[in-house]
Design a protein around this nucleic acid. Sequence first.
DNA 1: GCTATCCGATAGCGTCACTATCTATGATGG
DNA 2: CCATCATAGATAGTGACGCTATCGGATAGC
Lengths: 216, 216
Amino acid sequence: MRVGELSRRTGVSVPTIKYYVREGLLPAGELSSPNQARYDESHVRRLRLVRALIDVGGLSVAAIRDVLEAVEDPDRSVHEVLGAAHDHIAPREGGPDDAARDTARRQARELIARRGWLVDDDNPAVRSLADALAAFGRLGHDRFAEVSLDVYAEAAERIAAVDVAYVAREVAREDVVESAVVGTVLGDAVLTSLRRLAQVDASARAYGTGEPPATA
Amino acid sequence: MRVGELSRRTGVSVPTIKYYVREGLLPAGELSSPNQARYDESHVRRLRLVRALIDVGGLSVAAIRDVLEAVEDPDRSVHEVLGAAHDHIAPREGGPDDAARDTARRQARELIARRGWLVDDDNPAVRSLADALAAFGRLGHDRFAEVSLDVYAEAAERIAAVDVAYVAREVAREDVVESAVVGTVLGDAVLTSLRRLAQVDASARAYGTGEPPATA
DNA sequence: GCTATCCGATAGCGTCACTATCTATGATGG
DNA sequence: CCATCATAGATAGTGACGCTATCGGATAGC
Protein backbone atom coordinates (compact mmCIF):
# COMPACT_ATOMS: atom_id res chain seq x y z
CA MET A 1 0.00 0.00 0.00
CA ARG A 2 1.05 3.62 -0.37
CA VAL A 3 1.25 6.23 2.30
CA GLY A 4 -2.29 7.48 1.75
CA GLU A 5 -3.77 4.11 2.56
CA LEU A 6 -1.47 3.69 5.54
CA SER A 7 -2.76 7.01 6.75
CA ARG A 8 -6.39 6.02 6.26
CA ARG A 9 -5.98 2.67 7.98
CA THR A 10 -4.32 4.11 11.07
CA GLY A 11 -5.90 7.54 11.34
CA VAL A 12 -2.48 9.18 11.34
CA SER A 13 -2.01 12.06 8.87
CA VAL A 14 0.49 11.71 6.03
CA PRO A 15 2.75 14.53 7.25
CA THR A 16 2.82 12.94 10.68
CA ILE A 17 3.78 9.58 9.18
CA LYS A 18 6.63 11.27 7.36
CA TYR A 19 7.65 12.91 10.61
CA TYR A 20 7.70 9.56 12.40
CA VAL A 21 9.86 8.10 9.65
CA ARG A 22 12.28 11.00 10.01
CA GLU A 23 12.37 10.50 13.76
CA GLY A 24 13.11 6.81 13.42
CA LEU A 25 9.81 5.60 14.88
CA LEU A 26 8.76 3.91 11.66
CA PRO A 27 10.93 2.33 8.96
CA ALA A 28 10.69 4.03 5.57
CA GLY A 29 8.60 2.32 2.92
CA GLU A 30 10.34 0.31 0.24
CA LEU A 31 11.07 2.55 -2.71
CA SER A 32 9.69 1.16 -5.97
CA SER A 33 10.72 4.32 -7.79
CA PRO A 34 12.37 7.54 -6.67
CA ASN A 35 9.11 8.95 -5.48
CA GLN A 36 7.03 5.91 -4.70
CA ALA A 37 7.27 3.76 -1.64
CA ARG A 38 5.31 0.71 -0.57
CA TYR A 39 4.19 0.02 2.98
CA ASP A 40 2.91 -3.25 4.40
CA GLU A 41 1.17 -4.69 7.44
CA SER A 42 4.28 -4.33 9.56
CA HIS A 43 4.02 -0.58 9.08
CA VAL A 44 0.38 -0.58 10.10
CA ARG A 45 1.24 -2.56 13.19
CA ARG A 46 4.16 -0.37 14.12
CA LEU A 47 2.19 2.79 13.61
CA ARG A 48 -0.57 1.52 15.88
CA LEU A 49 2.03 0.67 18.51
CA VAL A 50 3.52 4.16 18.28
CA ARG A 51 0.11 5.81 18.61
CA ALA A 52 -0.79 3.63 21.58
CA LEU A 53 2.44 4.52 23.36
CA ILE A 54 1.82 8.21 22.67
CA ASP A 55 -1.93 8.43 23.28
CA VAL A 56 -2.38 5.96 26.10
CA GLY A 57 1.11 5.63 27.53
CA GLY A 58 1.96 9.31 27.25
CA LEU A 59 5.49 8.58 26.03
CA SER A 60 7.42 11.20 24.11
CA VAL A 61 8.60 10.64 20.57
CA ALA A 62 12.21 10.47 21.75
CA ALA A 63 11.30 7.92 24.43
CA ILE A 64 9.53 5.74 21.90
CA ARG A 65 12.53 5.86 19.61
CA ASP A 66 14.75 4.64 22.44
CA VAL A 67 12.35 1.89 23.40
CA LEU A 68 11.88 0.68 19.83
CA GLU A 69 15.61 0.64 19.25
CA ALA A 70 15.98 -1.54 22.31
CA VAL A 71 13.15 -3.80 21.17
CA GLU A 72 14.80 -4.32 17.82
CA ASP A 73 18.29 -4.90 19.15
CA PRO A 74 18.66 -8.68 19.57
CA ASP A 75 21.51 -8.11 22.02
CA ARG A 76 19.31 -6.39 24.59
CA SER A 77 17.80 -8.60 27.24
CA VAL A 78 14.12 -8.40 28.04
CA HIS A 79 15.06 -6.82 31.34
CA GLU A 80 17.03 -4.13 29.58
CA VAL A 81 14.21 -3.30 27.19
CA LEU A 82 11.67 -3.15 29.96
CA GLY A 83 14.03 -1.04 32.00
CA ALA A 84 14.30 1.39 29.10
CA ALA A 85 10.52 1.52 28.81
CA HIS A 86 9.96 2.11 32.50
CA ASP A 87 12.64 4.79 32.70
CA HIS A 88 10.76 6.76 30.12
CA ILE A 89 7.40 6.32 31.80
CA ALA A 90 8.63 7.29 35.24
CA PRO A 91 8.91 10.99 35.94
CA ARG A 92 12.40 12.41 35.77
CA GLU A 93 14.42 12.95 38.91
CA GLY A 94 12.37 15.15 41.17
CA GLY A 95 12.77 17.35 44.15
CA PRO A 96 15.69 18.58 46.24
CA ASP A 97 18.25 16.35 47.88
CA ASP A 98 17.00 16.77 51.41
CA ALA A 99 16.25 14.77 54.52
CA ALA A 100 12.93 13.61 53.09
CA ARG A 101 14.79 11.95 50.24
CA ASP A 102 17.12 10.10 52.62
CA THR A 103 14.18 8.86 54.66
CA ALA A 104 12.39 7.81 51.49
CA ARG A 105 15.39 5.91 50.22
CA ARG A 106 15.54 4.03 53.48
CA GLN A 107 11.82 3.27 53.33
CA ALA A 108 12.23 1.92 49.82
CA ARG A 109 15.16 -0.30 50.76
CA GLU A 110 13.35 -1.59 53.83
CA LEU A 111 10.25 -2.41 51.84
CA ILE A 112 12.27 -4.37 49.31
CA ALA A 113 14.00 -6.27 52.08
CA ARG A 114 10.71 -6.90 53.90
CA ARG A 115 9.14 -8.40 50.82
CA GLY A 116 12.26 -10.26 49.83
CA TRP A 117 12.28 -8.85 46.35
CA LEU A 118 15.25 -9.74 44.21
CA VAL A 119 16.10 -6.35 42.79
CA ASP A 120 19.31 -4.36 42.64
CA ASP A 121 19.55 -1.38 44.91
CA ASP A 122 20.46 0.72 41.91
CA ASN A 123 17.45 -0.24 39.83
CA PRO A 124 15.97 3.00 38.47
CA ALA A 125 12.54 2.02 39.75
CA VAL A 126 13.94 2.13 43.29
CA ARG A 127 14.88 5.74 42.68
CA SER A 128 11.49 6.67 41.28
CA LEU A 129 9.80 4.94 44.21
CA ALA A 130 11.99 6.89 46.61
CA ASP A 131 11.20 10.12 44.76
CA ALA A 132 7.49 9.52 45.16
CA LEU A 133 7.83 8.59 48.84
CA ALA A 134 10.00 11.66 49.42
CA ALA A 135 7.24 13.82 47.95
CA PHE A 136 4.75 12.30 50.38
CA GLY A 137 7.16 13.06 53.20
CA ARG A 138 7.72 16.67 52.17
CA LEU A 139 3.97 17.24 52.14
CA GLY A 140 3.62 15.94 55.66
CA HIS A 141 2.05 12.71 54.51
CA ASP A 142 4.62 10.41 56.06
CA ARG A 143 1.77 8.20 57.28
CA PHE A 144 1.25 6.99 53.73
CA ALA A 145 4.41 4.91 53.80
CA GLU A 146 3.44 3.47 57.18
CA VAL A 147 -0.15 2.54 56.58
CA SER A 148 -0.52 2.03 52.83
CA LEU A 149 2.78 1.07 51.33
CA ASP A 150 2.68 -2.62 52.11
CA VAL A 151 -0.83 -2.98 50.75
CA TYR A 152 0.34 -1.33 47.55
CA ALA A 153 3.33 -3.68 47.40
CA GLU A 154 1.15 -6.73 47.93
CA ALA A 155 -1.14 -5.60 45.12
CA ALA A 156 1.85 -4.90 42.89
CA GLU A 157 3.07 -8.46 43.46
CA ARG A 158 -0.22 -9.97 42.35
CA ILE A 159 -0.27 -7.81 39.26
CA ALA A 160 3.34 -8.55 38.40
CA ALA A 161 2.61 -12.27 38.61
CA VAL A 162 -0.01 -12.08 35.88
CA ASP A 163 2.18 -9.69 33.91
CA VAL A 164 4.99 -12.22 33.80
CA ALA A 165 2.55 -14.99 32.94
CA TYR A 166 1.10 -12.86 30.16
CA VAL A 167 4.49 -12.29 28.57
CA ALA A 168 5.42 -15.96 28.95
CA ARG A 169 2.81 -16.88 26.30
CA GLU A 170 5.16 -15.59 23.65
CA VAL A 171 7.99 -17.60 22.18
CA ALA A 172 10.07 -15.41 19.89
CA ARG A 173 12.26 -12.83 21.60
CA GLU A 174 10.79 -9.92 19.68
CA ASP A 175 7.26 -10.94 20.64
CA VAL A 176 8.30 -11.32 24.25
CA VAL A 177 9.75 -7.83 24.48
CA GLU A 178 6.91 -6.26 22.55
CA SER A 179 4.42 -7.93 24.84
CA ALA A 180 6.37 -6.76 27.85
CA VAL A 181 6.51 -3.17 26.65
CA VAL A 182 2.84 -3.07 25.73
CA GLY A 183 1.83 -4.76 28.96
CA THR A 184 3.93 -2.46 31.08
CA VAL A 185 3.03 0.81 29.42
CA LEU A 186 -0.63 0.21 28.67
CA GLY A 187 -1.05 -1.84 31.83
CA ASP A 188 -0.17 1.22 33.85
CA ALA A 189 -2.95 3.14 32.16
CA VAL A 190 -5.42 0.34 32.86
CA LEU A 191 -4.35 0.11 36.47
CA THR A 192 -4.63 3.85 37.00
CA SER A 193 -8.18 3.89 35.66
CA LEU A 194 -9.20 0.85 37.66
CA ARG A 195 -7.81 2.36 40.84
CA ARG A 196 -9.86 5.47 40.24
CA LEU A 197 -13.03 3.46 39.62
CA ALA A 198 -12.42 1.34 42.69
CA GLN A 199 -11.89 4.50 44.73
CA VAL A 200 -15.22 5.87 43.58
CA ASP A 201 -16.88 2.60 44.50
CA ALA A 202 -15.19 2.34 47.89
CA SER A 203 -16.02 5.93 48.65
CA ALA A 204 -19.65 5.43 47.66
CA ARG A 205 -19.91 2.38 49.92
CA ALA A 206 -18.22 4.07 52.86
CA TYR A 207 -20.30 7.24 52.75
CA GLY A 208 -23.54 6.09 51.23
CA THR A 209 -24.03 6.94 47.59
CA GLY A 210 -23.07 10.43 48.54
CA GLU A 211 -19.97 11.91 49.97
CA PRO A 212 -17.01 11.73 52.27
CA PRO A 213 -17.28 14.00 55.31
CA ALA A 214 -17.37 17.63 54.34
CA THR A 215 -16.96 19.27 57.71
CA ALA A 216 -16.18 22.52 55.88
CA MET B 1 9.58 35.82 54.89
CA ARG B 2 10.37 37.41 51.57
CA VAL B 3 10.55 35.74 48.23
CA GLY B 4 14.26 35.00 48.47
CA GLU B 5 13.81 32.89 51.56
CA LEU B 6 10.77 31.15 50.09
CA SER B 7 12.96 30.29 47.15
CA ARG B 8 15.75 28.95 49.35
CA ARG B 9 13.42 26.87 51.49
CA THR B 10 11.73 25.18 48.54
CA GLY B 11 14.48 25.03 45.95
CA VAL B 12 12.30 26.86 43.45
CA SER B 13 13.90 29.87 41.74
CA VAL B 14 12.49 33.33 42.33
CA PRO B 15 11.46 33.88 38.69
CA THR B 16 9.67 30.55 38.75
CA ILE B 17 7.85 31.49 41.93
CA LYS B 18 6.72 34.70 40.25
CA TYR B 19 5.61 32.68 37.28
CA TYR B 20 3.53 30.38 39.48
CA VAL B 21 1.90 33.39 41.11
CA ARG B 22 1.04 34.77 37.70
CA GLU B 23 -0.40 31.42 36.67
CA GLY B 24 -2.55 31.20 39.77
CA LEU B 25 -0.75 28.25 41.34
CA LEU B 26 0.38 30.22 44.33
CA PRO B 27 -1.33 33.17 46.05
CA ALA B 28 0.64 36.40 45.92
CA GLY B 29 2.43 37.45 49.09
CA GLU B 30 0.84 40.04 51.30
CA LEU B 31 2.05 43.48 50.29
CA SER B 32 3.52 45.42 53.19
CA SER B 33 4.50 48.23 50.86
CA PRO B 34 4.09 48.71 47.11
CA ASN B 35 7.15 46.64 46.41
CA GLN B 36 7.49 44.38 49.41
CA ALA B 37 5.51 41.22 49.99
CA ARG B 38 5.51 38.73 52.84
CA TYR B 39 5.12 34.99 52.44
CA ASP B 40 4.38 32.45 55.15
CA GLU B 41 4.31 28.73 55.82
CA SER B 42 1.20 28.29 53.72
CA HIS B 43 3.21 29.43 50.71
CA VAL B 44 5.97 26.98 51.49
CA ARG B 45 3.44 24.21 51.78
CA ARG B 46 1.65 25.14 48.59
CA LEU B 47 4.87 25.44 46.64
CA ARG B 48 5.94 21.99 47.78
CA LEU B 49 2.58 20.62 46.69
CA VAL B 50 2.92 22.24 43.28
CA ARG B 51 6.42 20.86 42.79
CA ALA B 52 5.32 17.38 43.85
CA LEU B 53 2.44 17.42 41.38
CA ILE B 54 4.79 18.59 38.61
CA ASP B 55 7.86 16.48 39.37
CA VAL B 56 6.29 13.28 40.59
CA GLY B 57 2.77 13.44 39.25
CA GLY B 58 3.73 14.88 35.89
CA LEU B 59 0.81 17.31 35.88
CA SER B 60 0.91 20.41 33.73
CA VAL B 61 0.76 23.89 35.18
CA ALA B 62 -2.72 24.37 33.73
CA ALA B 63 -3.89 21.07 35.21
CA ILE B 64 -2.59 22.03 38.63
CA ARG B 65 -4.36 25.35 38.45
CA ASP B 66 -7.65 23.57 37.73
CA VAL B 67 -7.12 21.08 40.53
CA LEU B 68 -6.16 23.73 43.07
CA GLU B 69 -9.14 25.84 42.14
CA ALA B 70 -11.34 22.84 42.78
CA VAL B 71 -9.58 22.13 46.07
CA GLU B 72 -10.19 25.65 47.26
CA ASP B 73 -13.80 25.86 46.16
CA PRO B 74 -15.90 24.83 49.17
CA ASP B 75 -18.81 24.04 46.86
CA ARG B 76 -16.98 21.23 45.11
CA SER B 77 -17.47 17.78 46.54
CA VAL B 78 -14.51 15.53 47.21
CA HIS B 79 -15.66 13.40 44.31
CA GLU B 80 -15.60 16.37 42.00
CA VAL B 81 -12.11 17.44 43.06
CA LEU B 82 -10.75 13.94 42.69
CA GLY B 83 -12.44 13.64 39.34
CA ALA B 84 -10.73 16.83 38.23
CA ALA B 85 -7.40 15.48 39.39
CA HIS B 86 -7.82 12.15 37.67
CA ASP B 87 -8.98 13.74 34.44
CA HIS B 88 -5.71 15.61 34.27
CA ILE B 89 -3.58 12.57 35.07
CA ALA B 90 -5.28 10.33 32.57
CA PRO B 91 -4.14 10.64 28.98
CA ARG B 92 -6.41 12.64 26.76
CA GLU B 93 -8.88 10.93 24.46
CA GLY B 94 -6.88 8.51 22.37
CA GLY B 95 -7.20 6.58 19.17
CA PRO B 96 -9.76 6.30 16.41
CA ASP B 97 -13.43 5.49 16.93
CA ASP B 98 -13.29 1.96 15.63
CA ALA B 99 -14.49 -1.52 16.43
CA ALA B 100 -11.72 -1.97 19.01
CA ARG B 101 -13.15 0.93 20.95
CA ASP B 102 -16.65 -0.53 20.95
CA THR B 103 -15.34 -3.85 22.18
CA ALA B 104 -13.30 -2.10 24.84
CA ARG B 105 -16.28 -0.11 26.06
CA ARG B 106 -18.22 -3.31 26.41
CA GLN B 107 -15.36 -4.96 28.28
CA ALA B 108 -15.20 -2.02 30.66
CA ARG B 109 -18.93 -2.07 31.33
CA GLU B 110 -18.92 -5.81 31.86
CA LEU B 111 -16.03 -5.59 34.29
CA ILE B 112 -17.81 -2.94 36.32
CA ALA B 113 -20.97 -5.04 36.40
CA ARG B 114 -19.02 -8.19 37.30
CA ARG B 115 -17.38 -6.50 40.27
CA GLY B 116 -20.53 -4.71 41.29
CA TRP B 117 -18.83 -1.34 41.34
CA LEU B 118 -21.07 1.61 41.99
CA VAL B 119 -19.88 3.97 39.29
CA ASP B 120 -21.68 5.93 36.63
CA ASP B 121 -21.28 4.72 33.09
CA ASP B 122 -20.22 8.21 32.10
CA ASN B 123 -17.45 8.49 34.66
CA PRO B 124 -14.36 9.75 32.81
CA ALA B 125 -12.30 6.92 34.25
CA VAL B 126 -14.53 4.48 32.39
CA ARG B 127 -13.58 6.20 29.18
CA SER B 128 -9.86 6.16 29.94
CA LEU B 129 -10.10 2.49 30.89
CA ALA B 130 -11.84 1.78 27.59
CA ASP B 131 -9.19 3.76 25.73
CA ALA B 132 -6.44 1.66 27.25
CA LEU B 133 -8.27 -1.60 26.57
CA ALA B 134 -8.95 -0.49 23.01
CA ALA B 135 -5.23 0.08 22.51
CA PHE B 136 -4.55 -3.47 23.70
CA GLY B 137 -7.11 -4.70 21.22
CA ARG B 138 -5.71 -2.76 18.29
CA LEU B 139 -2.29 -4.24 18.96
CA GLY B 140 -3.67 -7.77 18.88
CA HIS B 141 -3.38 -8.15 22.63
CA ASP B 142 -7.04 -8.90 23.27
CA ARG B 143 -5.97 -11.67 25.63
CA PHE B 144 -4.96 -9.09 28.18
CA ALA B 145 -8.55 -8.25 29.00
CA GLU B 146 -9.40 -11.93 29.29
CA VAL B 147 -6.56 -13.17 31.44
CA SER B 148 -5.31 -10.17 33.41
CA LEU B 149 -8.06 -7.63 33.78
CA ASP B 150 -9.82 -9.18 36.75
CA VAL B 151 -6.59 -9.60 38.64
CA TYR B 152 -5.87 -5.93 38.06
CA ALA B 153 -9.36 -5.03 39.23
CA GLU B 154 -9.02 -7.08 42.38
CA ALA B 155 -5.71 -5.38 43.15
CA ALA B 156 -7.24 -1.98 42.46
CA GLU B 157 -9.99 -2.72 44.98
CA ARG B 158 -7.52 -3.51 47.72
CA ILE B 159 -5.59 -0.37 47.00
CA ALA B 160 -8.69 1.77 46.85
CA ALA B 161 -9.77 0.46 50.24
CA VAL B 162 -6.61 1.75 51.91
CA ASP B 163 -6.82 4.96 49.89
CA VAL B 164 -10.26 5.71 51.25
CA ALA B 165 -9.14 4.79 54.76
CA TYR B 166 -6.13 7.05 54.39
CA VAL B 167 -8.25 10.03 53.43
CA ALA B 168 -10.75 9.31 56.19
CA ARG B 169 -8.13 10.30 58.81
CA GLU B 170 -8.73 13.91 57.93
CA VAL B 171 -11.55 15.97 59.34
CA ALA B 172 -11.64 19.35 57.64
CA ARG B 173 -12.90 19.37 54.07
CA GLU B 174 -9.81 21.06 52.70
CA ASP B 175 -7.55 18.48 54.34
CA VAL B 176 -9.71 15.69 52.99
CA VAL B 177 -9.50 16.87 49.41
CA GLU B 178 -5.81 17.68 49.65
CA SER B 179 -5.14 14.24 51.04
CA ALA B 180 -7.20 12.72 48.28
CA VAL B 181 -5.39 14.61 45.54
CA VAL B 182 -1.95 13.83 46.95
CA GLY B 183 -2.85 10.21 47.54
CA THR B 184 -4.27 9.77 44.08
CA VAL B 185 -1.56 11.55 42.12
CA LEU B 186 1.50 10.48 44.09
CA GLY B 187 -0.02 7.09 44.82
CA ASP B 188 -0.06 6.39 41.11
CA ALA B 189 3.66 7.07 40.95
CA VAL B 190 4.30 4.78 43.90
CA LEU B 191 2.18 2.04 42.41
CA THR B 192 3.88 2.27 39.02
CA SER B 193 7.30 1.91 40.59
CA LEU B 194 6.23 -0.95 42.82
CA ARG B 195 4.72 -2.79 39.88
CA ARG B 196 7.98 -2.49 38.02
CA LEU B 197 9.99 -3.77 40.99
CA ALA B 198 7.59 -6.64 41.51
CA GLN B 199 7.88 -7.50 37.82
CA VAL B 200 11.64 -7.66 38.08
CA ASP B 201 11.35 -9.89 41.11
CA ALA B 202 8.74 -12.17 39.55
CA SER B 203 10.76 -12.43 36.38
CA ALA B 204 13.92 -13.25 38.31
CA ARG B 205 12.11 -15.99 40.21
CA ALA B 206 10.50 -17.46 37.12
CA TYR B 207 13.66 -17.58 35.04
CA GLY B 208 16.41 -17.96 37.62
CA THR B 209 18.28 -14.82 38.42
CA GLY B 210 18.69 -14.41 34.69
CA GLU B 211 16.28 -13.95 31.91
CA PRO B 212 12.97 -14.71 30.28
CA PRO B 213 13.25 -17.00 27.24
CA ALA B 214 15.21 -15.38 24.47
CA THR B 215 14.50 -17.80 21.65
CA ALA B 216 15.90 -15.22 19.23
C1' DG C 1 23.86 56.84 52.00
C1' DC C 2 24.87 52.44 50.12
C1' DT C 3 24.22 47.98 48.65
C1' DA C 4 21.48 44.00 48.29
C1' DT C 5 17.05 42.74 47.57
C1' DC C 6 12.59 43.24 46.00
C1' DC C 7 8.14 44.14 42.95
C1' DG C 8 5.75 44.05 38.69
C1' DA C 9 5.82 43.84 33.88
C1' DT C 10 7.35 42.42 29.49
C1' DA C 11 9.99 39.91 26.34
C1' DG C 12 12.65 36.04 25.10
C1' DC C 13 14.18 31.04 24.92
C1' DG C 14 14.46 26.05 24.12
C1' DT C 15 11.82 21.95 23.52
C1' DC C 16 8.26 19.42 21.59
C1' DA C 17 5.06 17.45 18.31
C1' DC C 18 3.55 18.32 14.67
C1' DT C 19 2.03 21.04 10.14
C1' DA C 20 2.63 23.59 5.90
C1' DT C 21 4.83 24.47 1.76
C1' DC C 22 7.58 23.55 -2.12
C1' DT C 23 9.78 21.08 -6.11
C1' DA C 24 10.10 17.39 -8.89
C1' DT C 25 8.52 13.10 -10.19
C1' DG C 26 5.45 9.16 -10.97
C1' DA C 27 0.74 6.81 -11.10
C1' DT C 28 -3.74 6.50 -13.10
C1' DG C 29 -7.94 6.86 -15.90
C1' DG C 30 -10.16 8.09 -20.01
C1' DC D 1 -1.28 10.64 -24.59
C1' DC D 2 -2.46 13.74 -21.39
C1' DA D 3 -4.73 15.74 -17.44
C1' DT D 4 -5.11 15.07 -12.78
C1' DC D 5 -3.86 13.33 -8.66
C1' DA D 6 -0.68 11.33 -5.25
C1' DT D 7 3.89 10.96 -3.70
C1' DA D 8 8.91 11.58 -2.02
C1' DG D 9 12.03 14.40 0.15
C1' DA D 10 13.45 18.70 2.02
C1' DT D 11 12.92 22.82 4.67
C1' DA D 12 10.57 26.11 7.30
C1' DG D 13 6.96 27.44 10.29
C1' DT D 14 3.52 26.98 14.26
C1' DG D 15 1.51 26.93 18.79
C1' DA D 16 1.79 25.27 23.32
C1' DC D 17 4.55 24.87 27.33
C1' DG D 18 7.52 25.92 31.23
C1' DC D 19 10.31 28.59 32.41
C1' DT D 20 14.23 32.56 32.29
C1' DA D 21 16.15 37.17 31.51
C1' DT D 22 15.94 41.91 31.82
C1' DC D 23 14.28 46.37 33.20
C1' DG D 24 12.68 50.39 35.82
C1' DG D 25 11.81 51.87 39.81
C1' DA D 26 11.32 51.22 45.13
C1' DT D 27 12.62 49.55 49.65
C1' DA D 28 15.32 47.13 53.62
C1' DG D 29 18.67 47.15 56.66
C1' DC D 30 23.02 48.36 58.01
